[in-house]
Amino acid sequence: MDAADAPAALPGDALREGVVERLRADLGAGLIDSHLVPQTDLWVRVSTEAWADAAASLKAQGFDYFCFLSALDWMPSPYGKGEDDPTVEKEPLSTEVVPGVTGGDTRFQVFARVTDVRRHFGVTVKADVPDTLEMPSWIPSFAGANWHERETHEMFGITFAGHPDLRNLYLPGEFEGYPLRKDFPLLSRMIKPWPGIVDVEPMPDAAEEEDGTAEATPEEGGAA
């Protein structure tokens, strides 16, 4: 890769569709779904067993720049945002797992992004995480996945088979729990409601309001 190569023109659809075709040729049934936004971006979902092979295939196609690797927890948080009026009773929130782009069958998904620095576009790859929470590691293809997999492990609890040293990266050793899971509560918000909720008591002239006098209504905090 020498600096004398002129940068390629910005890619169109043909390039991204070509990537999908080549992945289908390499992985066969391992490629489950793809989502292409023309001129913008490409998402691809592969099966769990094909996760490491997808990395190798993409690297062979020229995507040798490793951007990042992380995980997604598709279950909505049962705690909400902690910004609701504490004097008003709220209904329990739905914890139904609804996956995003390119679908998914499990609560957790790992996703990663690699970029081709010569053709100037990248691909986001996703895969379902089975209930055993074990995934193959991307280190054989991209050495930089080391730290990313360690972070994903400590934040979600997903283990990566083949990782030489899966210990905590950010959190102190005695930390319990996996913070980025949606069922990990932020205790400060549970103990004390968000201080930005301005008006939790009714306005003193609530009686006049019913008569039709124009009164300013209390606003929920959160807008800019």
């Binding site: 913070p179 932020l186 205790l187």
Partner: peptide, 13 residues
Amino acid sequence: CGGPYWDSYSVTK
């Protein structure tokens, strides 16, 4: 007092 990270799991308030 912990500042903008008052609700974080890893910040001393």
